[in-house]
């Protein structure tokens, strides 16, 4: 993946660049808003990651200019302003995702990859399938190896969110945002409990587990 990182904090940029490159991505770096906008409009990137507060030009302003030019490159906004309200404003301004500093690198990576996938596949589907697990999105029915699995509405949503991103790491906060529409982090380990219940239903009676835990990052559904 070709990525652009716009970040003025040299130290923070170093960690992110190193991590992204180690994960196999090509990353360009811009150290201020003006350079960032120049690179963003000149280059062809899969995903742009920008800090919100930058010298010369604000991160949200960059997003606005890009959108005015008709560019739909997904943008992940990083910010030290971490309140719910700032997040809502950031997303309203045209950012595709918003991550509060400091963040775990795994969180950033998962979100960048999710943004890239979102861009490539947006066609509507009525059924999802991973190995022998099948989701009928219209009838909201789940079967595995031909057996019907009973799920609550919320468990179905959770499974659908994971299966739509099969093979891709999904973090706890991504699940909270995507399934429960909560933009803050509850203190209790709620997501773990929900996942473990989902596992009971989906994986317990089968040899090959489909829901995997990625240590320090989140969960992934794959064969």
């Amino acid at each position: 993946m070709r990525l652009l990182l716009i970040e003025d904090d040299q130290e923070a940029a170093r960690f992110v660049l190193k991590g992204l490159r180690e994960s196999g991505h090509t990353v360009d770096h811009a150290a201020d808003g003006r350079e960032g906008l120049f690179r963003a409009t000149e280059g062809d990137y899969d995903v742009i990651v920008t800090d919100r507060m930058l010298p010369h030009l604000d991160g949200l302003a960059i997003v606005q200019v890009l959108r005015q030019q008709g560019r739909s490159t997904p943008v992940l906004v990083l910010s030290a302003l971490g309140t719910v309200d700032d997040r809502v404003r950031g997303l309203k301004a045209g950012g595709d995702d918003y991550l509060t500093k400091p963040f775990a690198f795994a969180e950033l990576l998962a979100r960048v990859e999710a943004l890239q996938r979102r861009r490539s596949g947006t066609q509507t589907v009525t059924a999802l399938r991973v190995a022998d697990l099948e989701l009928d999105l219209l009838g909201r029915r789940v079967t595995r190896g031909g057996h019907v699995i009973e799920l609550t509405a919320r468990e179905f949503n959770l499974l659908e969110f994971l299966v739509r991103r099969a093979g891709q790491v999904v973090t706890r906060t991504m699940l909270l945002e995507g399934v429960w529409d909560l933009q803050f982090d509850p203190q209790t380990n709620l997501v773990e409990v929900h996942i473990s219940r989902l596992r009971q239903a989906v994986d317990r009676d089968f040899d090959k587990p489909l829901i995997h835990t990625v240590r320090g990052a989140g969960y992934v559904v794959r064969e």
């Binding site: 130290e11 923070a12 170093r14 960690f15 500093k101």
Partner: peptide, 24 residues
């Protein structure tokens, strides 16, 4: 308060970065 929070996040972010680097 805002700038204190902002300035605390910088070092925290670097601290986290270093620890994650170490972890790898």
């Amino acid at each position: 308060f805002d700038s204190a929070a902002h300035d605390l996040r910088g070092p925290l972010a670097r601290l986290r970065g270093r620890l994650e680097e170490l972890q790898r």
